[in-house]
Design a protein around this nucleic acid. Structure first.
Length: 570
RNA sequence: CGGGGCGUAGCGCAGUUUGGCUAGCGCGCUUGGUUCGGGACCAAGAGGUCGGCGGUUCAAAUCCGCCCGCCCCGACCA
């Protein structure tokens, strides 16, 4: 492509509404433009990258044996009601009525549609196993679109679904996808880690997230520096002994009530009473499917609602309101404590075991109790792991105190779904033994646009993007520095044509611009190889081959430069 | 949906507090000239319903009200 003909627009300055580096660079390099919140146009340059990523995804999916299809984005409401997700996903769904008044929605994911298809088309164990996938735009009315293409209301997802006859089969299908995912992210040049994860609204038990560590990530993962184990922070197990202070002083002091006017948050109480947050115990009143429960968590630790939800095996978990708290504790919000709670299930996180003579709410306004002790002052029948893991905690696998927390971008997620959807939607088959069984499913997603943003997050410098060869929009750019200089132009044109004829994605910057502008744009766009055609080098019959990555430059003859490029791209 | 901020030329911004010009500046764009290996310089231009609607006033980008849009911080998603 010639620059003079290309629809390429670069910006000198960062757009005012971009916060993270990938968003800024995608705008500046002319990959995307914003239409509205969470909706972006892919300009030709960005679209080329998108196509390359899709190409890699497609190749690896096909290689794994998955078959591509394409499902509609318009889904009937009834289908989603069968699985209960019309209600469950709520406002995330973009819903509308058509001219006949029928309720429709734009697909945020496709378990319902694919399972409906399976229900109609799969009848025998002979049809299994099968894995189907598509690359398609998804629609989600995100509460907060953010960071450009990292979190948008419409995004391109590769979603795959496996159907098996038995759990062993699912294991194999799942592994095949897992391996394909590793190859995809490797080929895209991402540094990533696959972590154990929560299944969220997908349901099912086993699940892995593919995380790209990055400051701009919205997720937190734990990494063990000792054994390398990693998990999503949401599911990372906190061992019972994983507490900083394990020694209980023998002596239990006398319990006392202390006036703490207007002081209710952990930080404030800690400051007011001059005790560390670790010596406080929070009492959180929650409602699980409408039933109240009291949760005890140490002041320096954070309740993990996913763990709690799982422990309680409930559908809806919410914090109790002022009135409910008053009824249960007898006191106002902010001063709840474990003593004297009537008719409420009390569940305590293991962390509470590690403290004695601690501070807790007094269940009356403006007062706390000090020197509280479990067993002596109140009973806990249920102990559980209910908190988020913290940096410096003990690794649940190797038991060494080496846990690190890092933010990361989720680029892929795999789930073992089991039979939830196949049961709801009637995806059954007749097995060898003549019995009717439900298909066992897995589902697997990749955020295609996120791969692009994640790659930029990991590969950039002050001058712009540094694309890995595999997903660069153009692999090489020819830069005739002076377009008035006939020889330069001739040679540049010749090299451009040769590379093009070899099927190499190459850009020719034939604009009558100054050298500086061409260098800046080439760097900003992140083209891996720059072929500089300048008069200085030409005087010695040489050309320059520059690598974007390290800015290294070699002086080569025209023939050698072609050879060298072919070598690099091989 | 809470909390904070913004909306003035294609992009980045000043002007708004304390109403009063013909609404400015940098980049970009057009034309001419000089430059020419890291976002050049000079000159002349084009380009604006000041987010929208309503109000106050002799007079509104500026004050008041409503609405719309966008961004950031918190409830877990590819």
């Amino acid at each position: 492509m010639r620059m003079t003909q290309a629809f390429i627009r670069t910006l000198k300055e960062d757009p005012s509404d971009a916060e993270v580096i990938s968003h800024k660079l995608m705008m500046r390099a002319g990959l995307i433009r914003k239409l509205g919140s969470g909706a972006y146009t892919y300009l030709p340059l960005g679209f080329k990258v998108l196509k390359k990523v899709e190409g890699i995804v497609r190749e690896e999916m096909d290689r794994s044996g998955a078959q591509e299809l394409l499902m509609p984005a318009i889904h009937p409401r009834e289908l989603w009601e069968k699985t209960g997700r019309y209600e469950l996903l709520g406002d995330i769904l973009i819903k509308y009525k058509d001219r006949h008044g029928r309720d429709l929605l734009l697909g945020p994911t496709h378990e319902e549609v694919i399972t409906d298809l399976a229900a109609k088309e799969i009848h025998s164990y002979r049809d299994l196993p099968v894995t189907l996938y598509q690359i398609q735009t998804k629609f989600r009315d995100e509460p907060r679109p953010r960071f450009g293409v990292l979190r948008s209301k419409e995004f391109i997802m590769k979603d795959a679904y496996s159907f098996d006859a038995d759990p062993e089969g699912l294991g194999k299908s799942y592994q095949a996808m897992y391996d394909a995912y590793c190859r995809i992210f490797d080929r895209c040049g991402l540094k990533y880690v696959a972590v154990e994860a929560d299944s969220g609204f997908m349901g099912g038990d086993v699940s892995h997230e593919f995380m790209v560590p990055s400051r701009s990530g919205e997720d937190i993962i734990m990494l063990c520096k000792a054994c390398g184990y990693s998990a999503s922070r949401v599911v990372a197990e906190c061992l019972e002994q994983s507490t900083v202070d394990n020694t209980r002083p023998a002596e239990m002091k006398e319990i006392k009530e202390i006036s703490t006017p207007g002081v209710s948050s952990v930080e404030k109480v800690s400051e007011f009473l001059k005790v560390k947050p670790r010596k406080l115990v929070k009492t959180l009143i929650c409602k699980a499917d409408g039933k109240p429960v009291a949760i005890l968590i140490r002041g320096d630790q954070v309740l993990n609602e996913v763990k709690l939800k799982r422990y309680l095996d409930c559908n809806v978990l919410e914090m109790a309101d002022e009135a409910a708290i008053k009824k249960i504790t007898g006191g106002p919000m902010g001063f709840s404590g474990p003593l004297g709670l009537k008719g409420v299930r009390i569940i305590s996180d293991h962390g509470v075991k590690a403290v004695s003579n601690f501070v807790a709410g007094a269940n009356k306004a403006d007062a706390h109790l000090v020197n509280v002790n479990v067993d002596r002052d109140f009973q806990v029948k249920e102990w559980a792991d209910l908190r988020y893991i913290e940096g410096g905690d003990i690794c649940p696998k190797c038991k060494k105190q080496n846990v690190d927390l890092e933010t990361a971008i989720e680029v892929g997620h795999t789930f073992k779904l089991g039979t939830k959807y196949s049961k709801d939607l009637g995806a059954k088959f007749l097995d060898k033994d003549g019995k009717e069984k439900s298909c066992i499913m897995g589902c697997y997603g990749i955020g295609v646009n996120r791969i692009i943003a994640a790659s930029i997050e990991q590969n950039n410098d002050k001058d712009g993007i540094i694309w890995p060869l595999a997903i660069a929009p153009y692999r090489a750019v020819v830069l005739p520095l002076n377009t008035e200089h006939k020889e330069s132009v001739e040679i540049a044109e010749r090299i451009y044509r040769k590379l093009k004829d070899m099927g190499i994605d190459v850009l020719l910057d034939d604009r009558p611009e100054r050298a500086g502008i061409k260098f800046k744009d080439a760097d900003l766009m992140g083209i891996p190889l720059q072929i500089v055609v300048g008069e200085k080098a030409l005087a010695k019959n040489k050309l320059e081959l520059k690598k974007r990555k390290d800015k290294s430059a070699d002086l080569l003859t025209e023939q050698d430069i072609i050879k060298s490029i072919v070598d690099i791209l091989k």
